[in-house]
Design a protein around this nucleic acid. Structure first.
Lengths: 213, 213
DNA sequence: GTCTATAAACGGATAGAC
DNA sequence: GTCTATCCGTTTATAGAC
């Protein structure tokens, strides 16, 4: 049981936040190359240290992956799930989920947010913990769609298909989005919102881009 | 230059199609665990041979990955792209792409169809070849959406966002679909089609599940 | 805290017997 | 065609000097 949790004061100016830097750089490389293809040497080089050096900060490669996944899920929780939970109206809640999740992905630390498939490298107990949190998010989305269906506002689409399809669009966004490209964060989030609103919801008041017949 | 291409007669009854078996089993394991996490030992064990044994059939791990990707793209070409190319009307073409791609994924050999992220392990020339074919598919979808936009049938959504979003739904389907579950291939394909038709197209004649106001 | 050096295990791939 | 045995590079991780 090593001393890991040194009190997390904000690293003051000039002081190096080594552990945080390791997390961020590792997340970026793992996102790009995949967990197994990323060696501790790759990470060390990116941080500007040797492999042995970073073992001073982390327990091992598995724990690093777990920490990154956990951090990403914390972000998701803070930026998407918790704000959305405060919203009573399910339609407004759905809009909030879609837009805030899309923007979380496209805004600065996109890689750290969701490592889609990189749970296979975790120890079983770690993996269960991550899977549980992901499932909780899926269930949250699903229950929102259920409410909408009960209100007669959802199209005749299976809720499982609907929730996974929304997920699919968002997860894939993290792969194709390039910062600084033609499209801004906002434009993309709004377009995906339009797709969801029109594709999933029954619109009594047509959306802005619906032609007035 | 080894003799690889022994004439491919159909293996007659009782005769073993070893190479085909290696491809299928390898595709399944790579799809589940990822390319780098899959060792030649894993594949050999799944086929019921030793590592050395399968090197009699394949050139190496990279070539195995390339063969699997190529085979998947061949399937995509035969079952989705070519049939859709025959269709003049872009709306009908879009419907065909979505439904046939969804069914390709959910029907038997789903894993072999698309190894989404497993191109990093390829040699540069191989990778370019695979990327080129994928991009051709994306361009095909994009040009179909472009035609619809020119006809005023597409909502005010950026074509890039639209095409990637359709892709995202379909690619993610390969991850969450479980054969023999509650939902059939057909039900899923039809639901995704509904999402696309309502989410992307401007419907002059409302779709069946659109409420008649 | 960060390094060099090295241990211990595992990876892809091949040689050669049968 | 399939095996056992083995080569050699790379990987994670650690020991110990500074």
């Amino acid at each position: 049981m090593k001393v890991k949790k040194s009190i997390k004061r904000n690293p003051s100016a000039g002081e190096k936040d080594r552990l945080g830097e390791i997390y961020r750089k590792a997340a970026k490389i793992i996102f790009e190359k995949g967990y197994d293809a990323t060696s501790m040497n790759d990470i060390a080089a990116a941080v500007g240290m040797t492999k042995a050096g970073i073992y001073h900060y982390i327990e091992g490669k598995q724990d690093l992956l777990f920490a990154i996944n956990s951090f990403g899920l914390d972000r998701l929780n803070n930026k998407v799930i918790e704000p959305a939970r405060q919203i009573e109206d399910p339609e407004e809640r759905l809009r909030t989920i879609v837009v805030s999740h899309a923007k979380l992905i496209t805004e600065v630390s996109g890689h750290i947010t969701i490592l889609i498939d990189e749970v296979a490298g975790l120890a079983p107990a770690q993996r269960r913990a991550i899977d549980k949190r992901r499932r909780a998010y899926l269930d949250f989305l699903r229950s929102t769609l259920r409410e909408l269906k009960d209100q007669g506002k959802l199209r005749d689409i299976d809720i499982t298909v609907a929730s996974f399809s929304i997920f699919g669009m968002l997860l894939w966004l993290s792969r194709w989005f390039r910062a600084g490209g033609r499209l801004t964060s906002d434009e993309i989030a709004q377009d995906i919102l339009k797709i969801v609103v029109n594709g999933f919801l029954i619109n009594e008041s047509p959306s802005p881009n619906q032609p007035q017949s």
